[in-house]
Design a binder for these strands. Structure first.
Lengths: 334, 334
DNA sequence: GCCCCCCGTGGAAGCGCTTCCATACCGCGT
DNA sequence: ACGCGGTATGGAAGCGCTTCCACGGGGGGC
């Protein structure tokens, strides 16, 4: 293996100079720099990441922490993060906190093992305990918020409100929200979405009905089951707002199985705008996942270079995507 | 930061002993081991990954190389890989070869920068050039094959043949294959699938028609466009086999837009069995992506421990998933 | 013309670990 | 009682880099 010593010898300079060339230190004479670069080229030299990390205290790696790896959302995010990192010398390591014991292990390793220069927390609530474990490590949050940590997200309350208002403007008053209620990882987003839904109803003077907020899991099956529950009600809803496109797809499917036309008999909308939403003509909320990933990575790199002076809390715009699964409330049958 | 020195002092032993405890070396007296473990616990010590890597020559990291990050397939795979690594001390770094210049940079870094103990190549053809660049680094292949590299994959030829035979058994003879033709990254799978399709036709004595093999991109739009082309033919197909579920969804959508019933007027099937295939009742081929990921990671870890003596080329079973989008050929209209 | 300062550079120290060698000690066989 | 083999352990060397300190030399100010 070629080392920095070999390069120094080949270029006729000292190792310090080679190191300065590698790290783009400004105080190197152009001629010397060129000589060193030629030597690097000739020898096909690549610095050892391990040695750089040990000596310099910087690993040139960022850790991406995701609670799960099962949803489209995380995948889109990851693609955005990778894109942001593509032109830097940073590497990405992935940590999944699926099991509770993984969580402790991963966080401790991150904080004390020096395995990353910064941590990008994706939909991971910044609890005091977590922040404490990770103290001293540059952080950034995607789809989360904390006064002391830079973050980028989407205003889920506003997005859900917009969607609910869309349904109201179509004449619906019996609007159900099928969403998860508890999530061990990601309570913030769920709460925000539900708040948007409730706020809109209230502003429109529509009474909120607890029975219109059934609890689902994150799956199409579960969405279908929730629809069954709703339709068994004495006054079933005329519109269903699903907290995720996958859930909405289950709802759509079940509605059609039951012989309901969409949007004639029932309006259905989703949340997220996954690729397939378009092909199912699903009205939904577009969440710019790749942009979230990209921006989150950028914020983290900034935080690594210099801790932000002022709090950063960016919000990327989401948008209502009106397709064909929501329509006017059918006039009550005579 | 706590170092191995601190632990040694705290436990009243030498650094060598602590190191042996950390690396589970057998020649440590149980009492000493316990003492060291207590000291580690008390101090909350975590070894520095960088130092371990530099001194030991092992990074405890594997690199996963994927050509793209846009498809469900890679995501399922990643989940499987993460699962396989969860109970090891290995970390995962992700490298995406989307742009050609990334490829050279990533491979060189992998080979010479010592950034990973092994490389898991996902649908990345093991060209002589690539193998040469990566020589000396333990490798494993997912959905690829090479005599000198352990690999795990799916027999795409057999899978495609099974699907084609299914269509033939339903009475179809005019069967189109809508698939990609060229892929800069992943020719092997495409070729295998096409071969399975052609073989089945041949075995059934059905003439192959070049016009029944239009070229698509990997998207629903592109699948829809390909269907238009096929239906404009003097003798349009009665069944369409799409090389991916996403393509199939585009085909389904366009067929319905054109007023065709599925499977009454047209049978459609996909490949991959993505989550939504089930909710669209799409007949498809199930590809065990998570298992591929898990098994690939296991093979790589084995290769890191000891280069395999005999060639390893595992094939995981795929299966035909019959749902509701393929049906008997409609008897010719009188 | 002299001094001072600063720029460019060389090289040693040290990052925290692994590993190897040397040493101490134990217990057994004789 | 002595020696030998083997086991448990301490500690130094060294992994390849960054960084800091020291030094030489050139130019500008007086």
């Amino acid at each position: 293996m070629t080392t920095i010593q070999d390069v120094a010898r080949e270029a006729g300079v000292g190792v310090g100079t080679v190191s300065r060339v590698l790290s783009r230190h400004p105080r190197v004479a152009p001629a010397t720099r060129a000589r060193v670069e030629r030597a690097i080229e000739r020898l096909g030299y690549r610095p050892s990441r391990a040695a750089r990390a040990l000596a310099g205290g910087r690993t040139h790696t960022i850790a991406v922490v995701v609670p799960l790896l099962t949803r489209h959302y995380y995948f889109g995010l990851l693609a955005g993060i990778v894109a942001a990192l593509a032109d830097t010398e940073y590497l990405l390591t992935l940590r999944v906190l699926e099991r509770p014991e993984d969580k402790v292990r991963a966080l401790d390793d991150l904080a004390r093992g020096g395995s990353a220069d910064g941590v990008l927390l994706v939909r991971t609530p910044p609890t005091p305990e977590l922040l404490d474990r990770l103290s001293g490590v540059p952080l950034a949050l995607i789809d989360g918020a904390h006064p002391a940590v830079p973050s980028v997200g989407v205003d889920h309350t506003a997005a859900a409100a917009t969607m609910t208002e869309h349904l109201i403007s179509l004449g619906h008053e019996r609007i159900a929200l099928i969403d998860r209620v508890r999530d061990p990882f990601d309570q913030q987003v769920l709460t925000a979405r539900r708040r948007g839904y409730r706020n809109s109803l209230e502003r429109a003077g529509i009474r909120r009905r607890p029975e219109y907020e059934p609890h689902t899991e994150w799956s199409a099956e579960s969405g279908a089951a929730a629809l069954d529950t709703l339709l068994a009600l004495p006054e079933p809803p005329t519109a269903v707002f699903a907290g995720g496109d996958t859930i909405a797809i289950g709802v759509l499917d079940r509605a059609r199985q039951r012989g309901l036309t969409v949007p004639g008999d029932l309006s259905v909308c989703g949340y997220g705008d996954i690729e397939l939403a378009r092909y199912l003509a699903l009205t939904t909320v577009h969440v710019p996942v790749a942009d979230l990933g990209r921006r989150g990575a950028e914020l983290l790199l900034q935080a690594i270079d210099a801790p932000p002076a002022a709090p950063i809390r960016e919000r990327l715009p989401s948008s209502l995507v009106v397709r064909a699964t929501c329509g006017p409330r059918r006039p009550p049958t005579q």
